[in-house]
Amino acid sequence: MINFLIRRTVFMFVALWAVTLISFFIINLPEGDYVTAYIAQLQATGSMVDAEEADNLRIFYGLDQPLYIQYFKWMREMVLYQNLGFSFEYNMPVTEVISERLLLTMILAIACIIFIWAIAIPFGIISAVKQYSVWDYLFTFLGFVGLAIPDFMIALIAMYLFFVWFDFSPGGLFSPEYVGVPWSWGRGKDLIDHIWIPMVVLGTAGTASLMRITRANLLDELSKPYVITARAKGLSEWRLIMKYPVRLALNPAISLTAYILPYLISGSIIVGVVLSLPTVGPQLVKALVAQDMFLAGGIILLIGFMTVVGTFISDLLLLWVDPRIRLEAGGS
């Protein structure tokens, strides 16, 4: 098992490194650079920038150097000083621009995962155990509706309904008086009051798919011989279902959770714009439009890191809950 852990950790670092390469590559995909965008912006407001000034700006920002040098500089700063570079757009270090948004994104993502598990697992179990019952049809119907409606649509409907019924606009994660102020108990409570609407909106599709997956896995497990053995032993039906097939059906759900994380972040971009959430999604769009390369790169990089680390954590979880993986990984 130690070997497996070492190997898995090494793979994780290789994957993280690949993420930095890809992030940097994506940043440099569009034609032109920040200065091009900056000049266009100035021209739009009427000022003119001549070619010499543009070159000076490029030298100032280090944009004249070959790509690999830019990459190594970027990497060195990141590894040694946790510095993701400078946002030209905000005139602030990238880390400062995104730190609070990143934290809120993580909080929202974890809330979503808890919501998804809390709804999808029990409903999936009932759906499978009472296959073709009224409950199964109801949950299946709701699941497909949840999968089929895009989440920004759900966000719009939620906003409309809340506005019409309660005269309340469910935008953002805070009441106006708590926006941009330091953390306090009141702010935390305000967050809890506001978080559940984006949580439900963002979690709907994930809930629907995890429910379908739980149902399918459990249906597979329910007909396995060990279930009959347990029944022949005299265990009561619900106890045996919870102890044996459900435990086995949960393993894929655990590995799936790692994939929910990036989905929530990328999926939250449109919803984030619609519900004006202070998360990294909307900021990524803005940064890409402005070609604020270090900001965009930083966000892409962190989303990538979260995915890789999330997968690693879910692998460790699987290792912990499934002896087959634990012992076979040790053997090889």
């Binding site: 060990y226 009959i228 022949a232 032993k233 044996y244 086995l248 087959r324």
Partner: peptide, 28 residues
């Protein structure tokens, strides 16, 4: 439930799949 496993027990053809793969033999 009292008859099953109490008065009448059963063993099966495939002992591998008749045990749960993620619970110890002792547990079962």
């Amino acid at each position: 439930k009292e008859v099953r496993g109490g008065r009448i027990s059963m063993i099966f053809q495939e002992p591998m799949t008749s045990f749960s793969p993620i619970h110890t033999v002792g547990n079962q």
